[in-house]
Amino acid sequence: MDKVVATAQEALADVVDGASLAVGGFGLSGVPDVLIQALYATGTTGLRVVSNNCGVDGAGLGILLAAGRISRVTGSYVGDNKEFARQYLSGELLVELTPQGTLAERLRAGGCGVPAFFTPAGVGTQVADGGLPWLYAPDGTVAVSSPPKEVREFDGRSYVLEHGITTDFALVRAAVGDRHGNLVFHRAARNFNPLAAMAGRITIAEVEQLVEPGVLDPDEIHLPGIFVQRVVELTAEQAADKRIEKRTVRH
């Protein structure tokens, strides 16, 4: 039952080239930076990433992206990552853009064993009709586009069929975790982290504070340990190292 692994490197030892990863975080909030840095050090490449966004230039998944380690991204936001935009538009990266709420539900559905579901999001657009550019050719033409999806009517309203997502691994960050893998997330870090953790066949959690089983009240646990296979305890310095994406101050 003790799922604690000594180091991030040990926890990631079986991640191979071409593996699929669900990665928690939103912008720079709740990003499993220590695990991402350790994965970068392994040299693993051809990774297929599912995440809300692909980090920013020089941080989070942006580190793997800049090194050419990511071959495909399923996400909902490009944001301020100029390298992400460059690789996508130059045909170096396959990108499946999906509505943010749909992405969240696809991860949750995969974790719950639901193969597919219907949603109104995207009906009447290229999300449902197909034709979204997934991969560009070097000359700027579209090499691969999204296929059309099934649309069905329920009670007079149209809905599009979306498939649940499962991945080989999931990388998440929690504020508190115990040795059984039960996790607690603080504030905005409770964004895509629980959903990504559910979708991974092997979920690895870096935790800022490790406690013994029984310390956490069951009512305060956001993700039960059944979804987590490995836990990595962060050092005090690692836990405190949190970047601010856009610092805003006033007089």
Rank of each mutant, 00 (worst) to 15 (best):
P32V: 00
R48C: 06
G43L: 14
T74Y: 09
R72E: 06
E83Q: 13
E92F: 01
C54A: 15
Y88L: 01
L47V: 11
A67I: 03
T44F: 03
G30Q: 02
V78F: 12
R72C: 09
L89C: 05
G55V: 14
D57Y: 15
V49L: 08
T45V: 15
Q87C: 07
G75Q: 07
E92A: 08
K82Y: 14
R69S: 13
G75Y: 01
V34Q: 05
T74D: 06
D33Y: 07
R69I: 07
G43K: 15
L64K: 08
A67S: 07
S29W: 08
G75F: 01
V56L: 08
A41M: 13
K82N: 05
G58Q: 06
G79I: 12
R48D: 14
L39G: 08
L65F: 14
L39T: 09
L47Q: 11
S76D: 11
G58R: 15
R48S: 12
C54G: 05
I63K: 02
N52W: 15
V50E: 02
E92S: 03
Q37A: 13
N53H: 13
D80T: 10
D33G: 03
P32A: 09
G91T: 01
V34M: 07
V56P: 01
G62T: 13
L93I: 04
S51R: 12
S71F: 07
V34G: 03
N81E: 05
A67L: 15
L35V: 10
V78T: 04
Y77F: 12
F84L: 12
A41I: 14
L93V: 11
P32M: 02
G58V: 09
G62Y: 06
E83R: 03
T44H: 02
G46V: 07
T74F: 06
L65E: 03
I63C: 02
S76E: 10
R86C: 03
K82C: 07
L89H: 13
A59L: 09
L93C: 08
I36M: 04
F84E: 02
G68I: 07
R48K: 15
V31G: 00
R48N: 15
R48M: 14
K82Q: 14
N53Y: 12
V78E: 13
L89S: 14
I36R: 00
D80N: 02
T74A: 13
L64M: 12
S90I: 01
L65T: 01
T44N: 04
V50F: 10
L65Y: 09
Y88D: 00
G60T: 10
R69W: 01
K82S: 08
G62S: 08
N53R: 13
A85N: 01
T45F: 03
K82W: 08
A85P: 03
L61F: 05
I70E: 05
T42N: 06
R72P: 08
V50A: 09
A67K: 10
T45M: 00
L35W: 02
A41Y: 13
R86W: 11
A41N: 15
Y40E: 04
Q37S: 09
A41E: 15
V31N: 00
G55N: 05
S71D: 12
R86N: 02
G68K: 11
Y77P: 00
A67Y: 05
Q87W: 14
T74M: 15
V56D: 06
V50T: 14
Q87S: 10
L65G: 02
D57R: 09
G60H: 02
V78P: 00
G55C: 05
G91D: 01
L35Y: 05
Y40C: 06
V56N: 03
S29P: 14
N81K: 02
T45D: 06
L93T: 07
Q37P: 11
